[in-house]
Design a protein around this nucleic acid. Sequence first.
DNA 1: ATGACTTCTGTGAGAAGA
Length: 260
Amino acid sequence: MKIATWNVNSLTVRLPQVLDWLAANPVDVLCLQELKLSDDKFPLQELEAAGYQSAVFGQKTYNGVAILSRTPARNIVKNITGFTDEQSRVIAATLDMPTGEVRVVNGYFVNGQSPGSEKFEYKMKWLESLRNWLREELAEHPNLVLLGDFNITADDRDTYDAEGLRETIHHTTEERQHFQALVKLGLNDAFRMFDQPEKSYSWWDYREMAFRRNRGLRIDHILVSEALKPLVRSCVIDKLPRKNERPSDHVPVVLELDSL
DNA sequence: ATGACTTCTGTGAGAAGA
């Protein structure tokens, strides 16, 4: 089975590109972030016509996440249990596959603006709450995938300028410690389980021809639990949609699992 | 270089993203 993540930066603008991508990449599950629309504006019918059901946690203007799947999602949880949040950033669901079930946790992690800001403090509290909740989710669901826009580079390989951007947002020691704390829960960075091209990124700024110059960051991640780790067949970044007209600044990351 | 580009709201110009 295949599970993918894509920050679409407005589903209103990007729906045609999402439908095109799904036609070319008929994954079992597609997790979206930054819908930037309320639930009543979500294009349920269009996606259903493409063969996908949707579990949606929208928000007007900002944030918003959804899980699209070929089979029904059940046991849907919105946001981090035990953490009060005005912003729609997490949706989790269980998907039944022919040989078992998988728990999918889709997150649009806090950006954090800059170290020391109030938004950075919110990011730190959000990450700690996420970890504490995931510990419980993992105990209940051994087959778990955590994926989405983490807004964190895991290490220096994930940035086009490790020296110049050291300790700036997405690159701070504190953020990377949070990432490693998630790994320590038994969540493996699927992308790094394989040899990958150097300078592989999932996001490029719209400005300064950043994509053409490959000045990007790898901040969209797929982490798999210990039980799923032996089943991971591949994890790849699909850069193609960044060449579209009016592209999202992020591109999809796709995980392939055996037997599920 | 407190920029650059894109989205949102709402119909201006500013906020937010990363």
